[in-house]
Amino acid sequence: MLAEAMGKDTFFQDKSILLLDKDAKKTNDRTWCFWEKGAGRFDDIVHKTWTHIYFAGQQFSQKFPIAPYSYKMLRGIDFYTTYLNRISSCSNITFRQEKVSIIKEDSSTVTVVTEKSEYKGKQVFNSIFDYQMTAGQKKYPVLQQHFLGWFVKTARPIFDIDQATYMDFSVPQKGNTRFMYVLPFSKTEALVEYTLFSEDLLSEDEYEVAIEHYLEQKLKSTDFEITETEKGSIPMTCYDFSEHNTLKTYYIGTAGGWAKPSTGYTFMSTSKKIPILVEFLKTGKPLIDLSFKNRFWYYDLLFLDVLKKNNAIGFEVFEALFKNRTPQQVFKFLDEETNFWEDLGNIWGSPKIPFTKALLKRLF
C-alpha cells in the first residue's frame, strides 16, 4: 500500500524504490474486513458487502442494520493482484521475492541483507512483525487476537446473506474472551471463524472442534464441505513500537503498532496512516518524529488492562456496549472519529467497575 502510494506521487519519480517480500503474493492467504460509510477506495476489489450485523452475548443478542455503514470484505489475492499490477507500471519501483535476514545502519546509509543479495538505501520501511519486539517489558499487556477459520459449503441453505455475524459470544468462554465470526457469501457458503482475545494460542484441533460444534449446534448443519482455511494471530497491545524506529528505519503496519489495540483491525487503520506518512516523508523531517498516538490509545490501554486482569469478562464489555449503544456509535468510536463527549458516552456504556479499577491503577 505504501509502495503504491509513493509510486503514483510525482514527488518520488526520481527516487529508486525497492519492495522486498519473502512471498510472491499469489495465493489467497488472508482476508481483511472493515466497515465504511458509502463508497470507498477499495470498492472495485471488495469481495462481499453486508448491510446488517448480528451480535450475540450471553444475555443479549440482536440483528442490527448498520446504514450508513456497510461491512466489507476484501480477499488477500485480489488486493495483491491489483496493487502489484499498479506497482509494476511504476518504472522506479522494483519488486523482488527475497527474505530479509538483517538490517544494518551506518552514518550515511542503511543496508538490507537478504538470503540472495544486499541492498543499500537512505530509508527503510519495515513491516516485519515479531512478538519478540514486545518482550522484556511489563508496562503494557500483550494479548493476541488469534483465530482459525473454515470456508464452508453446506448441503442446505442456512446462512443469511445480508448479515455478517460480527461477534457471537454464546459459545463457551472457558476463562477467555471467545467468539464466533461468520461471513456468508451465499445461503450455503460462508467463512466461519473461531476467535479469541487471550495471551496464549490453542492447539489447532481446539479451534476446529469449536467450529464444528458451532456449525452443528448453532447453525444446525452436519453436512458441509471445507473448501479453504485461514488462521492467524494479531497483537493486541499498546506497547510503543516506535521505540524500534531509528533515523533510517521506520516500522509500519502491525510492526509499527498500526493494529487497533482493542480490536486488531489493521487494514483501514493502515490505509488512513499511509497518506499521512507519505506527506510527512515529503517534508524531509526526521521520520522518528512522526507519531500516531492519540487519546484513543489510552482508551485501548484501559481495555487491555481489563482483559489482562480478567480475560473471562471480555464478552461482558462488548455485550454492554452493543446493548447500550448503536453499532453506528460503536463503529464511529472504534474508527476514532468521535468527540470527547461521545467518547464518554461509549465508555459509560461499558462495565464501570473494572474500567474504573484499571484507570485508578494506571493513575496511581
Rank of each mutant, 00 (worst) to 15 (best):
E206T: 14
E206Y: 03
E206R: 13
E206H: 09
V209G: 00
V209M: 04
V209I: 13
A210S: 15
I211R: 02
E212N: 10
E212I: 04
H213T: 15
L215P: 03
L215M: 13
E216L: 15
E216F: 11
Q217E: 12
K220A: 15
K220S: 15
S221T: 14
D223S: 11
D223L: 06
F224N: 07
E228P: 02
E230C: 01
G232T: 12
I234K: 05
P235Q: 09
P235T: 09
T237K: 09
T237L: 07
S242C: 05
S242T: 15
S242W: 04
S242Q: 14
H244S: 11
N245M: 07
N245I: 13
N245G: 09
T246F: 08
Y250V: 15
Y251T: 14
I252L: 14
A255D: 11
A255E: 08
G257F: 06
W258R: 10
W258K: 10
A259Q: 14
A259G: 09
S262N: 08
S262H: 07
T263W: 02
G264E: 14
G264F: 04
Y265C: 08
T266P: 10
F267C: 06
F267V: 04
M268C: 03
S269V: 06
T270E: 11
T270H: 05
S271I: 07
S271H: 13
K272E: 14
K272T: 13
K272V: 09
K272C: 12
K273G: 09
K273R: 15
P275N: 04
P275Y: 03
I276N: 07
I276Y: 05
L277W: 12
E279L: 03
E279I: 00
F280Q: 14
L281H: 02
L281E: 02
K282E: 01
G284I: 04
K285R: 13
K285L: 07
K285C: 00
I288F: 07
L290V: 01
L290R: 06
K293N: 08
K293A: 06
N294T: 13
R295G: 04
R295K: 12
R295W: 01
R295E: 10
F296D: 07
F296K: 09
W297T: 11
Y298A: 03
Y298M: 02
Y299C: 09
D300C: 03
D300F: 02
F303K: 02
D305G: 06
V306H: 06
K308L: 13
K308V: 03
N310V: 01
N311P: 12
A312L: 01
A312T: 07
G314P: 08
G314W: 04
F315K: 10
E316R: 15
E316M: 14
V317M: 14
V317C: 06
V317P: 00
V317S: 02
F318C: 05
E319A: 09
L321Q: 04
L321S: 11
F322R: 05
R325G: 00
R325L: 01
T326G: 00
P327K: 07
Q328M: 06
Q329N: 11
V330H: 05
V330T: 11
K332E: 13
K332N: 08
